[in-house]
C-alpha cells in the first residue's frame, strides 16, 4: 500500500508503485461495480467540486458518478458560464472555492499548467481532469487498467499511440505512464501533429502508420479535433483518414490479438473506421469508459485517505 500523493496533477509525479496501487484498487472497484456492491461510506461527508473551465460531458459525468458511488456530495460548476467570464482570475476563483472548504476538487482547464497553479492555492486534494496540452492523468490510468485487464499485464507491451499527438494531453500522460511501467511506446502521426523532441522521451517516432503499427499489442487512437483542420495541420479529413485513420488494412499490421483503444469522443471515418470501433473482438472502447469510473473512484478514495491522514496529523499537532 503506497500512494503518497496529495494531489493527482499528472502522471509525471507518480512513482510506478503508486500507479500499481491505484490500479489494483481500481480493478477491485471495477469488479464490484459490476456486482453492484455499494461503497457509499468511502467518501461520506466529503464534498467534491467539479470545476470545468472547458466543456466536457464524458469526463465530468465519469467523475460525478465516481464521487456519488463513493458517497461524496458532488457539485458541478460549469466555469464557462460563471464569474470567469466576468473577469475573475483563476487564483481568485480558487480562493473563493477554497473558502467553501471542499475536500476534492476536480479541475479541467484549457491552459497547460493551470491546474498546478490552482493546486498551490487551495488546501484540498486536487485532481487534474485535463489541463491544456499538458496532462490528463485519469485518462492514462484508465487506459492502463483497460490494457492490464485485456492483456493480463502492463509491462513489456508494445503500444502505438496514433493521431494528433501535438495537441493531446492524453498522449503525454500515456507516454509517461507506459514508459514508467516499462513498455515500448511508438508514436504515429503526420509530422505536423508530432511534438518536437519526443524521441528524447524514449519513444519511437513514425510518420508511416503501417510501419508504426507493426507487431504492436495495443493501438491507441487519438481524436482529431475538427478545429485543427482550420489550422492547416492536415490537408483534409479524407486524406487524413486515408493515411492515418485506423481501418482493417492498417490494423492487420499489428499483432493478431492487438486491442484497439480510443479516449472518445470518436470521429468515425476520420481517425477510426466505424466497423473497427464496434468490433467486440478488437475494440475495448466501451471498457475504457467503464474503467474510467473505477479509476476515478480509486483516485479519489486514495487522495481522501491521504487527506484524512493529513488532517488527523494536523489535529495531533494542534493538541
Amino acid at each position: 500500500m503506497a500512494f503518497r500523493a496529495q494531489h493527482l496533477l499528472g502522471i509525471e509525479h507518480l512513482a510506478p508503485d503508486e500507479i500499481t496501487t491505484l490500479l489494483d484498487l481500481a480493478d477491485r472497484y471495477a469488479n464490484e461495480n459490476r456486482d453492484r456492491v455499494s461503497h457509499k461510506d468511502v467518501l461520506a461527508g466529503l464534498t467534491q467540486i467539479n470545476m470545468f473551465f472547458e466543456n466536457s460531458t464524458r469526463t465530468q459525468a465519469s467523475f460525478e458518478l465516481a464521487g456519488k458511488r463513493l458517497g461524496a456530495d458532488v457539485m458541478n460548476m460549469s466555469m464557462g458560464t460563471s464569474s470567469v467570464k466576468k473577469g475573475e482570475t483563476l487564483i481568485d476563483t480558487a480562493l473563493t472555492l477554497n473558502a467553501m472548504h471542499p475536500d476534492l476538487l476536480v479541475v479541467r482547464h484549457p491552459n497547460s499548467g493551470a491546474v498546478d497553479l490552482l493546486a498551490q492555492k487551495v488546501n484540498c486534494a486536487v485532481l487534474n481532469a485535463g489541463d491544456g496540452r499538458h496532462e490528463h492523468p485519469t485518462q492514462a490510468l484508465l487506459d492502463a487498467l483497460t490494457i492490464r485487464r485485456a492483456k493480463g499485464r502492463l509491462h513489456r507491451l508494445s503500444v502505438a499511440i496514433c493521431g494528433d499527438i501535438l495537441h493531446s494531453r492524453v498522449a503525454r500522460s500515456n507516454i509517461m505512464l507506459l514508459g514508467k511501467m516499462e513498455n515500448r511506446v511508438r508514436l504515429v502521426a503526420p509530422p505536423t501533429l508530432m511534438p518536437a523532441g519526443v524521441a528524447d522521451l524514449g519513444v519511437e517516432v513514425f510518420d508511416d502508420m503501417e510501419e508504426g503499427l507493426k507487431d504492436v499489442d495495443v493501438v491507441m487512437m487519438l481524436r482529431l479535433q475538427k478545429e485543427r483542420m482550420d489550422g492547416g495541420f492536415v490537408p483534409s479529413e479524407r486524406e487524413y483518414f486515408h493515411r492515418y485513420g485506423l481501418d482493417a488494412a492498417k490494423l492487420s499490421h499489428a499483432k493478431d490479438d492487438a486491442i484497439v483503444m480510443h479516449p472518445g469522443p470518436m470521429n468515425r471515418g476520420v481517425e477510426i473506421d466505424g466497423t473497427i470501433a464496434d468490433d467486440i473482438n478488437r475494440s475495448v472502447i466501451q471498457e475504457q469508459v467503464e474503467m474510467g469510473v473505477a479509476v476515478r473512484m480509486a483516485a479519489m478514495d486514495l487522495l481522501a485517505r491521504n487527506l484524512r491522514a493529513a488532517k488527523a496529523e494536523n489535529r495531533k499537532v494542534m493538541v
Binding site: S112, G113, G132, R133, H134, E135, R169, R172, A196, G197
Partner: peptide, 13 residues
C-alpha cells in the same frame, strides 16, 4: 522554445 521541454509541458512553442 520548440523541444523536449515544451513538448513535455504542453506549451505552444
Amino acid at each position: 522554445t520548440k523541444g523536449k521541454f515544451a513538448s513535455l509541458r504542453g506549451l505552444p512553442d
